[in-house]
Design a protein around this nucleic acid. Structure first.
Lengths: 222, 222
DNA sequence: GCTAGTTTCCTTACATGTACAAAAACTTGC
DNA sequence: GCAAGTTTTTGTACATGTAAGGAAACTAGC
């Protein structure tokens, strides 16, 4: 008995699993036990298949993670009320994306995508580009501005997340930390001056401040 | 016969390899054949030892890469003449770091460090923090400013590099690319408007423009 | 029904990072 | 010289992503 009552039209062996099923199951594993528990084998047995079968629905694990990111975005990235003033709209849109991504630690391994091209995130990109244009930028500079915002945003998340991961992995001080403790005040006076507060200063969340500065700078007359 | 003529003072079995030797050999492999050829086994045989012996001199492969990055920085990051004007000095220092890192594609896997704390790079950090302070920022805001610059810089390199890698890996279009080709112009008018030029626009190198905007914004009166 | 073609799936195999435990090569105190 | 302690090295073992090739389950044409 065929899968459906209607006669099949597609050629070849009928699939027993779908890309959607793969992504959904992967999501369940990640949500329940964290991304480090998501292995291709685990996913395969969970889905009642074999590891290599997955590779017919997903190019590789990295693509699977990208799909998970899009899935996550589609579920959690709801369009908020944005300010009418275009500059504030740019900032609010970027901050919303940032907030959603920052709340989702496993994203880091994917964030290095060249853009946030999930369909559900495109609306935010639109808002940012549109806001920049309404503020007077020509469209090419608006696109460049969006990219700068994206670099800044992705960089912030990736840097913070991996720094945190390195810290929890091991308690021994990195030699980098050591480097910072014995500074030569005559050679590097400013750093020596702030050395004591460095770690607390870098622990602060200043994403929005930096974002605001960047947008201000992008919009300032040349 | 002991290693040196002088009597040894250290306890335990004398080491046959050193961290320095590990890093140097790793560098040779990376320089000659690329980072993807650097495996712990390969490195071990090259050095005349066993894989697990390396782990007494290096915490794991990630730390080895960090060490490679510092080594690279120490060799190639020479202090240039910087402009006297503090704002331009900030930009020049950041651009110099960026240039060095961008020329070194394998760096990507490490860049997610929370800072660029190589001893040889600290001078650049000093220049940036000092420039921001000389422009009138209080020291805490200068540190935050440096971090924003670092986020932006690291993000740019990581995003660009992985985007490039994905592209060369496979010729098939990503589904992300597909997403961008069929846009609804009524829903996302700005994106539809620039869709044709998107890839060429994002291919342009606008790092310094964005950096300048960010610094301008950081220094603008609140 | 039979053959060819197509798509999906499974089996096997390999390279890699690294955990774990034991052995090896030392120093120190007796 | 010997026992205890310390550090480095080695051998073995496992989990992981995924390449390669073939088997399985279909449709289309005869």
């Amino acid at each position: 008995m065929p899968q459906t009552s209607a006669p099949r039209k597609t050629l070849g062996r009928p699939p027993r699993i779908s890309r959607e099923e793969v992504v959904t199951t992967a999501r369940r594993i990640v949500d329940a036990e964290g991304v480090h528990r998501l292995t291709m084998r685990r996913l395969a047995t969970e889905i009642g298949s074999t590891p290599m079968a997955l590779y017919h629905h997903v190019r590789n694990k990295e693509e699977l993670l990208v799909l998970l990111l899009d899935d996550y975005a589609a579920r959690t990235l709801h369009r908020p009320e944005l300010p009418a003033q275009p500059r504030e709209r740019v900032i609010a849109a970027a901050a919303t994306i940032h907030e959603a991504l920052a709340a989702c630690p496993w994203i880091v391994e994917v964030l290095t995508a060249d853009d946030l091209m999930a369909t559900s995130a495109l609306w935010f990109v639109e808002q940012i580009v549109d806001g920049l244009i309404e503020c007077g930028l020509p469209s090419e500079r608006a696109v460049h501005g969006y990219r700068a915002i994206w670099y800044y945003t992705a960089g912030e998340i990736v840097v913070r997340a991996t720094a945190g991961r390195r810290r929890t992995d091991d308690t021994r001080p990195t030699y980098r930390e050591q480097v910072f403790t014995d500074l030569d005040p005559t050679e590097l006076p400013r750093l020596a001056q702030v050395a004591d507060h460095w770690s607390s200063l870098t622990a602060e969340d200043t994403y929005v401040d930096g974002l605001r500065a960047l947008v201000d700078g992008l919009l300032a007359p040349r």
